[in-house]
Nucleic acid binder design. Structure first.
Length: 268
DNA sequence: TCCTTATGTATAC
DNA sequence: TATACCTAAGGAG
């Protein structure tokens, strides 16, 4: 495998890997690990902007900021804008895994229910905490809470055990489906708006969703405008009518719970 | 052409 | 809690 860094920011790492034989790839949460003969491991995390592009040889001239370029006899791959692109040994890999929680996509993932339901933090923050659940990003967190009919600000300890059990099962199935299909679709067939049935539309994020980035648009289920606020500098989207605190499902919309005009900012 | 935004994380305060 | 990181796409003008 030929490895280089056209951009120049991974020159030393690329030199370590250049010429080695690629053996296996593993995903752990949002982290990608490539193992090479001799024991070196490439660690990549795409972060907010990272992207991978690839194709068949010959490799074209680099376009933009290519952090890492890999090429075999038949394929090439470019990596741009990752949060992490570095060479690990197995000790560093072990340290990485030690700080990550349960990965819903892994068969050996244990149910993180105890950690979730012993916490006073908002369930949304817990879903996003990589040390509790590794790999559930913003889209799945927002969509999972809608599908559960649960208010994002609900404290972890207030989530009923049976509800958490169904959420964990749902999350694992949703993420598995996302891997298989290569896109994130979370809308139940029964709720698929007619406009989608007539002309399926794929949003920039890559799928059809209930609440993610649908601020102000009508809820697919009840028609209420989707709301948006911030939590720990991340975007939170939810339906104020469909998503309720535990035990209050189906309650008709009442008066706003905060004074009008005050920003819906939630601290953790 | 310029400005804003984004599926994320680490670090400093 | 705020900011830095870092790249490209989309929208405003």
């Amino acid at each position: 495998m030929a490895v280089s860094s056209p951009q120049g920011r991974f020159v030393d790492g690329a030199a370590l890997l250049d010429g080695l034989v690629f053996e296996t790839a593993e995903a752990y949460g949002k982290h990608l690990l490539h193992r090479y003969d001799g024991g070196l491991v490439l660690h990549v995390h795409l972060g907010l902007y990272g992207k991978v592009s690839d194709g068949v040889m010959p490799v074209p001239a680099p376009v933009g900021q290519v952090r890492m370029r890999m090429a075999s006899d038949v394929h090439w791959l470019d990596l741009r804008g990752p949060t992490a692109c570095e060479v690990f040994d197995e000790v560093q890999v072990a340290a990485l895994k030690a700080r990550l929680g349960a990965d819903p996509l892994r068969d050996d993932a244990g149910d993180p229910g105890d950690a979730v339901r012993s916490s006073s933090r908002p369930i949304f923050a817990l879903l996003m905490d990589q040390s509790i659940i590794a790999g559930c990003g913003l889209i799945y967190a927002n969509e999972l809470l809608f599908r559960a009919g649960l208010a994002p600000t609900t404290r972890g300890r207030d989530v009923p055990p049976e509800l958490w059990g169904s959420m964990w099962t749902d999350l694992r199935a949703l993420m598995r489906e996302g891997v298989d299909k290569g896109r994130i679709d979370t809308v139940h067939t029964a709720h698929t708006p007619e406009v989608m049935l007539r002309a399926p539309r794929v949003d920039r994020h890559g799928g059809e969703v209930y609440v993610y980035r649908r601020t102000g648009q009508p809820c697919h289920v009840c028609g209420t405008a989707i709301a948006r606020s911030e939590l720990a500098a991340r975007n939170l989207y939810w339906c104020p009518s469909c998503q309720r605190p535990p035990g209050r499902a189906g309650r008709t919309p009442g008066k706003p719970r905060r004074p009008a005009g005050r920003p819906a900012r939630i601290s953790r």
